[in-house]
């Protein structure tokens, strides 16, 4: 399972990550970020391929994807 965090202080709610993820891990949520818009939430984290597109295409560097200890061992 991937350790995906979305920073509340950086996110601006542009929704690029929702459509760019090939496994559709990010979904819209009702949580608000500091900018005042709705921020995404990471569900279904087992499906993550670690392609890194969400990190690269997030214009605010809010998303961080890390491998957990179990994944590293594989």
């Amino acid at each position: 399972m991937a350790d995906i965090t979305i920073d509340k202080a950086c996110c601006k709610g542009c929704d690029i990550c929702l459509s760019i993820c090939p496994k559709k891990i990010f979904v819209r949520s009702k949580k608000r970020n500091d900018y005042g818009t709705n921020m995404p939430e990471a569900v279904n984290r087992d499906a993550c391929l670690f392609c890194g597109m969400c990190e690269r295409l997030c214009p605010d560097g809010a998303i961080s994807v890390r491998k957990t200890e179990e994944e590293k061992e594989k």
Binding site: K12, G13, C14, D15, I16, Y35, T37, R56, L57, C58, P59, D60, G61
Partner: peptide, 9 residues
């Protein structure tokens, strides 16, 4: 930058 702006990328 505005939300969704390409400058961040």
């Amino acid at each position: 930058f505005c939300p969704g702006c390409g400058n961040g990328i």
